[in-house]
Simulated assay, not measured.
Amino acid sequence: MRKRPLIVLSTVAAATLLLAGCSGSGAPESSGTPDPSASSGCLLDAQPGKTSDSIDVQGEGLDAVVKVPADAAFADVERTVIAEGTGDEVVANDLVGVKYQIVEASTGEVVDSSARSEGGEAPVLLDQNSASLFIAALECQPIGTQVVLALPGEVFGEGGTNKVVYAEAVEQLPEVATGTPVDPTPGMPEVKLDDDGKPSITIPDGDAPAETQVAVLKQGDGATVASGDLVVVQYLGVKWSDGKEFDSSWSRDAAPAQFQTTGVVTGFQKALEGQKVGSQVLVVMPPSDGYGASEGNELQNESLVFVVDILATTPVQAQQ
């Protein structure tokens, strides 16, 4: 479904190598202590340390003021809980609403925050390939927990600077479309949902349409997807020619997928942009809006059908 690898542009995603670089380390200054993530199932489960414990947070949410001591060492990835929540525990691949600030340690400047998201709460899919920073901050803590995460500059790569993340997972977000059902569009494939919301698609008799067609199956009322947004979706893709599945988030432990609208084939992009979060859409695309005549591709010259649940959308911040 993707036509090229996702190019992540935000400060938030600059730490995508965080888990790979740090998941093997134990608690700060305690190399003889067993790694707690080994038994908990957590990917990192960052522990408190001298730096994270020394950070002062006054207030909460987007109004919080984060103060970092000038002599803070930033010797390791450290996480300190400043207020414990009472909700379900957050784990990798969860979709959660997050209030956060990312602060430049040396200056106290807020370099990114959830203020740029609708309502000041950013939808975050805890995918270790593109949101490892938030996995480190939020995993293995209950919903409602407020944390500070101390990040040495080295986790951001060469030239990186020390940063502090103040974050709270406010709520679990739906992982299926929650919009109002819409009457089916005549001539389009039939979609049925099981009790968990997983779709199946039945292809009608006849030839595939010559142009991309999009039908709304459920009408959401959330934020509108814009071109270039980072979206979170559940999806199922089948070939018009035989109705066989070729790609599906539902087949990967029903974990949602995340990508930019500009990082997928044209027909999929047309299905997403302009739609509202909470919607479920059905798209039928000819090869010209799919994979065309790409030699060696299993979808060469195939008309494709997708049903897509749109779960979240976030504008992508220009690279700092």
Rank of each mutant, 00 (worst) to 15 (best):
T178C: 04
T266K: 15
D183T: 12
S294M: 10
A293N: 14
V233R: 08
P186F: 09
D207K: 14
L282I: 12
A137W: 00
A27P: 04
V214M: 12
D71S: 08
S113D: 10
E84W: 04
L18T: 01
L43H: 02
A169C: 09
L125H: 15
K198D: 09
N162R: 00
S114D: 08
D195M: 11
R2F: 12
L138R: 00
P315W: 04
V191G: 11
P5Y: 02
P174I: 03
L138W: 01
Q260M: 09
D247I: 01
V57P: 08
P186K: 08
A64G: 01
D183I: 04
I7S: 08
L272N: 15
G153D: 09
G290M: 08
V182R: 00
S23C: 10
V124R: 05
D253M: 13
I310W: 05
E78D: 07
P36F: 09
D194I: 06
G197P: 07
A136V: 09
P209D: 02
K163T: 04
G21E: 12
P181G: 13
S23V: 05
V68D: 07
L125Q: 13
L95R: 02
P48S: 06
D194A: 07
G278I: 00
S37Y: 05
E190G: 03
S294H: 00
T262Y: 03
M285C: 09
I310T: 05
Q280I: 08
Q269V: 01
V90W: 13
E109K: 13
L125R: 14
I310N: 04
K67M: 08
L272S: 14
D53W: 00
A169K: 03
D242T: 02
E29M: 07
T178V: 14
T202K: 15
V165G: 02
G187M: 06
I7D: 06
G220N: 04
L62W: 13
N93E: 12
T80P: 07
D88C: 01
S114A: 15
T314I: 11
L173M: 12
N301Y: 10
S54D: 07
V265K: 15
S114Y: 10
P256V: 04
G206A: 06
G292L: 03
G59R: 01
R2E: 13
S106W: 03
V155W: 10
G179P: 08
Q320N: 11
P36H: 07
A255Q: 15
V182F: 00
A210L: 06
M188R: 00
A27R: 03
T261E: 14
G21T: 07
K198E: 14
S40V: 13
Q269D: 15
S31V: 11
L173W: 02
